[in-house]
Write a protein that binds this DNA or RNA. Structure first.
Lengths: 210, 210
DNA sequence: GCACAACCTGACCATACGGTCAATATTTTT
DNA sequence: AAAAATATTGACCGTATGGTCAGGTTGTGC
């Protein structure tokens, strides 16, 4: 068995710098899009010289790809809420809660993903065709089983998933619009709770679990 | 009373050229984003020399603004379906149908709008604060009246509207993802019908109109 | 404490972009 | 049919971008 090497100053610093770059990149890509974002701006936001970015990530596209992958992995993890469920109502509820919380905590990431897909997924098409396709098929199968067992109203599983994705991500992707319609102020804690309750309430009743 | 001037060859040609530019711009802006789109590419797609674009639209931003305004106006018109309704179920149904049809007919426009809002609405913030705010307040009031009259379940009107926007526009904005999950093929007529029925079914039941 | 590797960075480069303009062609008006 | 107005275009320009690189600095292993 290999002894665990101690964490060197280098490794720690590397991780930290990488995080700073990724965090700045997520923000800048979300706010300007891939084309509108500049390496210089990401450098400024992360407080590093531009050349340093290219030391950590060879190209703008490589950096972007990493940002997209990160948010995708977070979403995959949220699905565990769905899998661990003992009932349809509980599973759907937990999944919506998890996705809504990600929308609140990581709105930039959500926007980057949305932007990427809207532009035809030039960078992560392979993810859509493999991981996402499998994931969707698996969850759709679970929903179909629930329906077959008479535990919920018969609805098209894919369209139900689309509705959950659309609605939960809307609070991140269109957060600016929602904020404008909320007198220019971000949703308060109570308003986020109301949003979650509204979404869960309508969807659960909509699939016969009210 | 002024006599109606006959349509000159010039006016017709102008309208035609303008349409060609706007159509190409909508597509290119949707596929590349504002920053990623180039005037040269829009010129190529519309089959005109780049300098000609600047004759019709002084700047890239002016052209973009016009594209965004056009889709917004289409959405406003779709709301008439809502207003003309004699019952909550009929109004919501008709509105969802109208928005779904726009998503199918004008996916590029929807994406341009989504992109604009996601990036903080730098160009159409004034629209959000005036037209959209008024429109939303008006429709929310209608829904509140329906609820007060006991004609539907009490739900938060704003969140209901967000859900309708999110879900219907999802079929345009994330069309590429949906297509990928549909074995790489665009939704057929029947599948679009199923999508509409699913969305309407869940939302209507969700607000107690099932 | 020394040799080596990893890391950092200012200055630089080729390219591509939005936009301009002077010259030309076309249509309308007189 | 001439003159005036409008529309079209290739060539051009300043700027900003993604990316490179040589030289310097810092940390690691022995």
């Amino acid at each position: 068995m290999t002894a665990a090497r101690p964490t060197t100053r280098r490794e720690a610093s590397r991780r930290e710098t990488e995080r700073a770059i990724l965090s700045a990149a997520e923000k800048v890509f979300a706010e300007a899009g891939f084309g509108g974002a500049t390496m210089q701006l990401i450098a400024d936001v992360s407080g590093l010289p531009k050349a340093n970015l290219h030391y950590y990530f060879p190209t703008k596209e490589a950096l972007y790809r990493r940002v997209v992958q990160d948010i995708f992995e977070i979403w995959l993890k949220a699905a565990e809420a769905f899998d661990a469920a003992e009932s349809p109502a509980q599973g759907i509820s937990a999944y919506i809660d998890a996705k809504m919380e990600i929308s609140r905590a990581r709105p930039h990431g959500s926007k980057v993903w949305a932007s990427e897909v809207m532009h035809g997924a030039p960078v992560i098409q392979d993810y859509l065709e493999t991981t996402l396709r499998d994931w969707t098929a698996g969850r759709a199968a679970v929903i179909r089983r629930w329906i077959a067992a008479g535990r919920m109203r018969p609805v098209d599983p894919e369209h139900l998933l689309y509705m959950i994705w659309a609605t939960t991500q809307h609070y991140a992707d269109f957060g600016h619009q929602i904020e404008t319609l909320n007198a220019g102020k971000p949703l308060s804690d109570a308003q986020w709770q109301a949003a979650k309750d509204s979404v869960k309430g309508i969807i659960l009743r909509g699939v016969g679990l009210g």
